[in-house]
Structure formats: C-alpha cells, structure tokens
C-alpha cells in the first residue's frame, strides 16, 4: 500500500512541472484548462435547464459517431470528427425524445437506454476496428491527456500555437465564449422562462438544439484527452461549484473559469505526485474544490447553513446562555 503513494518531493511535484518540464506539463495544464472551462461554460446552461444528464448521454454517444467518422474518412481530421459527433449528438437527442414521447418509458430511463446502447456499439466498433481507429478502449473512458504535448504542433506564420488537440480545444473554447457573449440574453431568458423567451421572439427549440450541438462539439474535442466519463465531471463541477458562490449567471461563468484554472493546475500537481491519470486527477482536484466550497461557502455552505439553523431554532437559548444581555427587568 505504501509502495503506491510515492514520497512527496516538493521540487519534483511543485517546481519541476513548471520549470524544466514546462514544455510537457504546460501544454497538459493548458489543455486541462481549455477542456474544463469550455465544458464548464456549456455545462452551466445544461444545469440551468436541468439537463445535466444530457451531458452524460451525449458524452457517451459521440463515440460511435467519432469511430464512424474515423472509419469513413480514415483520417483524424477535425471536420469529420465534428460532423460525426454532431450527427451522434442530434441522433441521441431525437432518440431520447421519441422513446420518451412515443411510449410510457420515463425520460431518465430513455436517457439510460439510449446512451448505453450507442456507447456499447461504439466500444464494439473500437474493438473490431482497433487497427484503423487508433483509440483504445480504456482511453475511451478516461482519455490520455498526457499525450497532448506529443501531438504535432500547429504554427501560424512562425508563431507556435500549440499541439493540435490544444489548438482545436482553444478554438472551441473561443467559439463557446463568443456565442455566450453574443446570445447572452437569449440563452439566459430561454433557460429560466421558455414562455417569455418565445414571446420575445427567441425560438426555444432552436436554442435547445443549438446547445446540444455546442455540447457535442465540446465533448468530441475533449474526448481524446479526457474520455467519455470524466467529461461529465468537467461539465458539472465548475458550474456546480460556482453556483454555490453566486446567483448571477455572469459571475457563475467567471467563477467557473477560475475553478477550471485551479483544478487544472492542482490536477497536474496531483497527477505528477501520485503518478496517476492526469485527467482523472484534474477531476479529483475539481471535486476537492467543490467539497471545500460546499463546506465553507458564505451563502450556501454547510457551516453557514448549520449556523443559520442554530440561530433560527434557538434564538432565546442563545441570548440567555451564551451572551448574557445587560438587561433592564
């Protein structure tokens, strides 16, 4: 058991990744930040619409789309990958809706059936065409973010932008950010009050499918580095943590970005120390942040709740025993 947890070497864990090994871990941390923040921003809207589990569903079901795209074009180009993911994402949404609308199966069961089927098909396809697809089954689950720096670099006009997956993810993050800025009001209103949104001239169905499309693109760009399941944590954790600290959507977005930055830095540190999967370590770091905020948040935290309840239940007892008031009887 002791052999499993390596000794904590402050230099190797805290300093080296950011100095002599920066060319390696710098890109990993940057990729982690890009993935977590893009997922977090999209995830905020999923959570507002109570569709957090659609993230789970889409993240699993992009796999067959991805594999099919690899097989058809026999390349790992960005465009076929996005097309495959979009097709799979839209198909998932439609399949869930139709199972749930056409029969008496409830929506949660419909989600479970749809994504597990598509994921199973995807896994079988990866196993059958392992040679062509270049995705191994475990990587499908938790990705391999440590391989990101080894990918070919992209450079524009002599300026090195970074490895391919990072550049792609950063572009997706930028796109998500721009879309949120451009459609901030529409997204906000349609999340909270679809009826009002419709009367203001926003098409809620269009918003729904647009969000699903954004989700598919984000998930598929994150797929190779964090896999199908960890991406669910990255969709939910930043927003969940942020929403315990603020109720304003704009601030929740900013706090999600902060969460993404801290959790990717801490994740690299944890991953280097324990020598485990860095993507999983980033999620664990993000979950630790969530746990911390859940306990100490001034408005929603467990401590604050406990103190509020104590004050509410025992107002007289408190004033009698603990702080005797100089009284005038």
């Amino acid at each position: 058991m002791n052999a499993m947890i390596p000794a904590f070497d402050p230099h190797a864990v805290l300093v080296a990744p950011w100095t002599e090994n920066l060319s390696l871990f710098g890109w990993i941390a940057a990729m982690g930040f890009a993935v977590t923040s893009a997922c977090g921003l999209v995830g905020n809207y999923l959570m507002l619409r109570r569709m957090a589990l659609m993230g789970d569903a889409v993240s699993h079901s992009v796999l067959p789309g991805l594999v099919a795209a690899f097989l058809v074009t026999s390349s790992r180009g960005t465009l076929p990958m996005f097309a495959g993911a979009l097709a799979a994402g839209v198909f998932t949404t439609i399949a869930i809706e139709s199972i749930h609308k056409l029969t008496r199966v409830k929506q949660d069961a419909a989600i479970g059936i749809t994504f597990s089927t598509l994921f199973a098909i995807g896994v079988v396809m990866t196993s059958l065409y392992a040679a062509q697809v270049d995705l191994d089954a475990d990587c499908v689950l938790y990705g391999e973010i440590a391989f990101v720096p080894l990918e070919p670099m992209v450079s524009v006009g002599g300026v090195v932008l970074g490895p391919v997956p990072f550049v792609r993810m950063a572009a997706v993050l930028l796109m998500v950010g721009l879309l949120i800025v451009a459609f901030y009001k529409e997204l906000l209103v349609s999340a909270f009050d679809p009826g009002l949104a419709r009367s203001l001239g926003t098409n809620p169905t269009l918003m729904h499918y647009g969000l699903m499309a954004a989700l598919s693109v984000v998930v598929v760009s994150a797929f190779e580095s964090v896999g199908a399941i960890l991406v669910v944590a990255m969709l939910i954790l930043p927003g969940a943590t942020a929403s315990l600290l603020s109720t304003r959507l704009s601030r929740v977005h900013l706090l999600s970005l902060v969460h993404a930055a801290i959790s990717s830095w801490l994740g690299v540190t944890l991953g280097v120390w324990l020598d485990c999967s860095i993507a999983a370590a980033m999620v664990v770091a993000g979950a630790l942040l969530f746990a911390l905020v859940w306990i100490v948040s001034p408005s929603e935290g467990l401590i604050a709740r406990w103190r509020r309840r104590r004050r509410a239940v025992l107002p007289s007892a408190l004033s009698d025993d603990s702080n005797p008031v100089p009284e005038a009887k």
């Binding site: 959570m47 589990l53 938790y142 960890l230 944590a233 969709l235 954790l237 929403s243 485990c276 999967s277």
Partner: peptide, 25 residues
C-alpha cells in the same frame, strides 16, 4: 441549490475519477 440530476452526474463522474486514479496507480 443543485438539482438532483446535477448531483447525480457530479458524484458519478467524481467517484469514477477517483477510481481511475487508484486503478492507474
């Protein structure tokens, strides 16, 4: 304030991540 679906997804993926950390170790 988190809804049950968000809580489910959060716990699911976090526990899975802890498991993956342990398994890779």
């Amino acid at each position: 304030r988190l809804k049950e679906d968000a809580a489910l997804g959060l716990v699911l993926a976090t526990f899975f991540a802890i498991g993956i950390c342990l398994v890779t170790m």
